[in-house]
C-alpha cells in the first residue's frame, strides 16, 4: 500500500474512531432517558469497575500486571464510608480523601511489591489483595465485617441535595470517570508515561540512561493506588453500601479482564468494563448464573483474536487467489 493510501486510511480510521467515541458518549449521557433504573445502576457499577481497571492498566503500562488493585479500592471505599457515616457526605471531598487513602495504602505496600517484576509481581499483588480482603472480613469494627457498612447518599456541593436518584448518581459517576479518562489520556502523552513504557520495554537500558527507575515506578504505583481509591469513593456513592466482598479476588480478575478486553486503550477498557458488568449482572440473570462462563468465553475470544484474524485473512487471500 502506498504511503498516501496509508495516511488516508489512518486518517479515516481516526475519524471513524472519533465518530464512534462521540456516539458512545452521547449514548452514555442519554442512557437514563432511555433505560430503566436497573440498567442505569448496572452502567454505574460498570463505571466503577472502569476506574479500577484504569489503575490496573496504568501498572500494565509500566509492565507490572497486578491482581491487588482491589485492595486500594477497598481502602478508598472504607475511608469514604467512615467519612459519610460521620456526617461528611460531600462527594468532591470523598474523592480527594479516598484517592489519598488509596495512594497511602499503595505507599505502604510499595517496598514489598516494587522489588518484584512480571509474574512475581502478579503473585505478590495477589497475595496482598487476599491479605487485605481477609483482614477486612475479620476487622468488623472498621469494615463492618460480612454485614458491611450502610452509607448515606453523597451531596455534590455544600448544602446540596443528597444524591438518591439513580440517574443523578449515574451522571455523577460518569462525570468523574470521564474526567479520570481525560486525565489519564493527557498523562499518556507526558514523559512520565513514556518512561513507564520504556521501563516495561527495557529496564536495564533505562538504568543505563540514568533514569531514576525506582522513583518512576513508585510514582506509578502511588498514582494507581490513588485511582483505585477514587473507584472506592464512587463505589460507595453508587451502592450506598460497602462490604469486604467488594474487594475480593473476583473483582481483581474482572478489572484485569477489562484491561485485556480493552486492548490497553482507555475507551476500550471503559467499554469492556461496562460490558463485563452487563454480562455478569444483566445477562447472567437470564442464563441461570452462567455469566462467568460467558466472561471466560469473551476472554478466550480476546486471547485468540490474533490467530483467528490471521486465519480469516489467509482464508480470504486463498479465496481471492482461487478466483
Amino acid at each position: 500500500m502506498s504511503p498516501v493510501r496509508s495516511r488516508l486510511s489512518a486518517r479515516s480510521r481516526h475519524m471513524v474512531g472519533c465518530a464512534v467515541a462521540a456516539a458512545l458518549l452521547a449514548g452514555a449521557l442519554l442512557l437514563p432517558a432511555v433505560a430503566g433504573p436497573y440498567v442505569v445502576a448496572l452502567a454505574a457499577t460498570g463505571l466503577v469497575l472502569t476506574v479500577l481497571a484504569f489503575s490496573v492498566h496504568l501498572l500494565m503500562v509500566a509492565g507490572l500486571p497486578s491482581l491487588g488493585q482491589a485492595a486500594y479500592l477497598g481502602v478508598g471505599a472504607s475511608t469514604t464510608a467512615h467519612l459519610a457515616t460521620a456526617g461528611i457526605t460531600l462527594a468532591p471531598l470523598h474523592l480527594l480523601v479516598a484517592g489519598a487513602a488509596g495512594a497511602l495504602a499503595a505507599a505502604l505496600t510499595a517496598p514489598v511489591v516494587l522489588r518484584t517484576r512480571a509474574t512475581t509481581f502478579l503473585m505478590v499483588t495477589f497475595a496482598i489483595g487476599e491479605l487485605v480482603h481477609t483482614s477486612a472480613q475479620h476487622w468488623a469494627t472498621v469494615t463492618g465485617g460480612d454485614q458491611g457498612i450502610q452509607v448515606p447518599p453523597v451531596i455534590l456541593w455544600p448544602g446540596g441535595t443528597p444524591l438518591r436518584a439513580q440517574a443523578g448518581i449515574y451522571w455523577y459517576t460518569l462525570t468523574v470517570v470521564l474526567a479520570v479518562t481525560g486525565g489519564l489520556a493527557l498523562l499518556g502523552r507526558t514523559r512520565h508515561a513514556l518512561a513507564w513504557r520504556a521501563i516495561a520495554d527495557h529496564e536495564p537500558r533505562m538504568h543505563a540512561l540514568g533514569h531514576p527507575v525506582n522513583r518512576q515506578l513508585l510514582a506509578c504505583h502511588l498514582l494507581t493506588g490513588g485511582v483505585a481509591g477514587l473507584g472506592g469513593a464512587l463505589l460507595v456513592a453508587v451502592n450506598h453500601y460497602v462490604c469486604p466482598a467488594d474487594l475480593d479476588f473476583t473483582t481483581a480478575t474482572l478489572a484485569l479482564l477489562a484491561v485485556a478486553l480493552g486492548s490497553g486503550r482507555l475507551l476500550g477498557i471503559l467499554a469492556a468494563a461496562v460490558g463485563i458488568i452487563a454480562v455478569r449482572d444483566g445477562i447472567g440473570t437470564i442464563t441461570a448464573g452462567h455469566s462467568l462462563a460467558l466472561l471466560g468465553l469473551a476472554f478466550l475470544t480476546m486471547a485468540y483474536r490474533q490467530p483467528i484474524t490471521r486465519w480469516l485473512h489467509t482464508r480470504r487471500t486463498h479465496r481471492a487467489e482461487a478466483t
Partner: peptide, 21 residues
C-alpha cells in the same frame, strides 16, 4: 542493541537525552 524496541525512534532519543550527565 539495547533499545526500546516497542517505542518509536523519536521516543528512544527523547528518553536518552532526558538529562545529560
Amino acid at each position: 542493541p539495547a533499545i526500546f524496541a516497542h517505542l518509536t525512534v523519536a521516543d528512544n532519543l527523547t528518553l536518552a537525552g532526558h538529562r545529560a550527565a
